[in-house]
Amino acid sequence: MTIEPKHTAGIGTAVQPKATAQVRKRRSGKRRSGSLRRREAWTGVLMALPWMLGFLLFTAGPMLFGLYAGMTRWDMISPPRWVGFQNFIRMFSGDDRHFYRSIGVTFRYVLMSAPLHVVLGFILASLLNMKITGTNFFRSMYYLPSILPVVASAVMWSWVFNPDFGLLNHGLSMLGIRGPGWLSSPDWALPAMVIMNLHYIGPSMIILLAGLQRVPQELYEASQLDGANRWQILRHITFPMLSPVVFFIIITNINGSFQTFTQAFLMTNGGPRYATYFYMLHLYNEAWGAFRMGYASALAWVLFLIIVAFLAIHFRLGKLWVYQESD
């Protein structure tokens, strides 16, 4: 109650310049004659035209064409043959043994990778948020692997995962653990990819750090005065304030793993025994391996719908349980 007047006063002063600017704009708009405004509109459309054309040529057009192609059988040599929903039936009925398998691999990967990204990202962000000297150095150190080319990273991790001479098993042997065969083991190949993906934690960490820094300091001070302990502050202030960020990271992870291709292609090519057969790898093999362009287009559309579904959950459901600032 006592805080309220102060609060509104703050908002009032902050908003005022913006409001006058808006008034000014409206006035100048009124002063402008119709022909000037028409010319502005033409210039505007003209300047935005490249993107609008690009959207039609490289996004909307191909998407619709892809939907059509998804209803055909097409090897790119003979003309496409209309088959209706047969491609989708083949997919979902299990005729294509690799469809569900690749979705399974992709989801298993997300289920391991996303929680690790959130938890490790949160730990790193909290440590970086402690305002100690050298924060910038540590932040760069953790971010650095994220900017490496995926091809270079794949080469590096293949070497690190080498069962006999690799760095990882050497490190484990120092702890007295005999490491597995990693990429050559059907059980450990996917966890190995998850470990590799942890090297790309940089953006998650930075977003979590920014989220931590956006938590109003008064909230912490007020709860400390009220005698809350560390766990209570974490549970009732930090976590709820971070929930949109966490949700964003999870969605990005799902999105990313459905588009994981290069490292799986180079490091394991889906093996051993399909343990790392990601969805994109399946799509690639159908399109550019077997040249089943029709079926691959159908796979691409299903992938698109899966991601759109998660984004829809992100935007709709997210509002129910995620704390969001009302600004």
Partner: peptide, 8 residues
């Protein structure tokens, strides 16, 4: 996701 436009 870019892939939906990639094949076309």
């Amino acid at each position: 996701p870019g892939i939906v436009t990639f094949i076309p």
